[in-house]
Design a protein around this nucleic acid. Structure first.
Length: 296
DNA sequence: CGTATTTGACCCGCGC
DNA sequence: GCGCGGGTCAAATACG
């Protein structure tokens, strides 16, 4: 099971002023190791992500994140952070998770409302979701997103939460499909996308959208791989978390430009290669994302 | 039998 | 205006 370490690349995100995600161009510098080329990152990934900071601290805190993440000098690191701290969208503010995440993720992505229920009646054979209760002018804002890459053989990483797959789509320029998951907890609209890098099949890219407004299901707590709290997300803690959880993962955060991956992480990481359930520290705050183990 | 996954259709925004 | 790419729904199916 844990013979082969997984590497996790961490990626920050930003808001895309566009809507459905198309504004790449931001990351050319990310992913150093396997992903390699800029062009690839541009196409392979999905869209810009909102700043993780947003997730953590609310709007306007990009710097904080940057501070938390990127201030370390690039070492050979495995973790890179890329922060484009720039775009903070103008109109969006949205609820930024921190405060009103009451419905985190309740909305859809590209402004597509889920009117879909139309088909229920069954009367219409032609129009399934024809009617669109869409509000004019109101653009749906997407939840803050946070993505990271993990070197793993399994696509869906165990993160302590329960997810239900609701879709799968082929990714352009990639032979691997992208899977869409939604948190099964009622009221929690957190979504997550999982796809494999077409450049390096061993790398899985997971993108979380929104924040959980509930705790990790007790039943799964024990299994949760590593839990990171947004509020605690600092390189140190991440390291601790990763190491502490005993999961052979490596994070690669992409942030403004610096690698922020302490060597310590490396060492600890390799050390606890096996099982060291000691993540209690982070357990409380559970968060919005976690990484999991390879296979139960 | 209840729940989760699969899968094709549909919707939406954007670029051309 | 049309086509493309991405995201979501829901009926059908698989699985426990």
């Amino acid at each position: 099971m844990s013979d082969e370490p997984r590497e996790i690349y961490f990626r920050d995100s930003f808001y895309d002023d566009q809507q459905c995600g198309t504004g790449f161009s931001l990351f050319d510098h990310h992913v150093p190791l396997t992903m390699g080329s800029a062009s690839q990152s541009v196409q392979g990934f999905d869209s810009p992500y909102t700043s993780f900071t947003e997730c953590l601290n609310g709007p306007g805190d990009y710097n904080a994140l940057g501070r938390a993440f990127g201030l370390s000098p690039p070492s050979s690191s495995d973790m890179y952070a890329s922060t484009e701290a720039n775009t903070k969208v103008a109109e969006t503010p949205n609820s930024s998770v921190s405060s009103s995440s009451s419905e985190a993720g309740g909305d859809d992505d590209c402004g597509k409302n889920k009117n879909a229920k139309g088909s229920e009646d069954g009367g219409e054979s032609s129009n399934k979701r024809a009617n669109k209760p869409k509000k004019k002018g109101e653009k749906k804002q997407r939840e803050p997103r946070f993505a990271f890459m993990t070197k793993s053989e399994v696509d869906h990483l165990e993160d302590g939460y329960r997810w239900r797959k609701y879709g799968q789509k082929a990714v352009k320029n990639s032979p691997y499909p992208r899977s869409y998951y939604r948190c099964t907890t009622q009221k929690c609209g957190v979504k997550k996308r999982v796809e494999r890098s077409f450049q390096d099949p061993t790398v899985v890219i997971t993108t979380y959208e929104g924040q959980h407004n509930h705790q990790i299901p007790p039943a799964l707590r024990g299994n949760a791989a590593a839990m990171f709290s947004p509020q605690m997300l600092t390189q140190a803690q991440m390291s601790a978390a990763a190491a502490g959880s005993g999961y052979p993962h490596q994070f690669f955060g992409l942030h403004g430009g610096g690698a922020v991956y302490p060597q310590a992480f490396h060492q600890q990481f390799h050390h606890h290669h096996h099982q060291v359930p000691d993540y209690g520290l982070l357990q409380d705050a559970v968060p919005s994302f976690i990484l999991g183990q390879r296979h139960p």
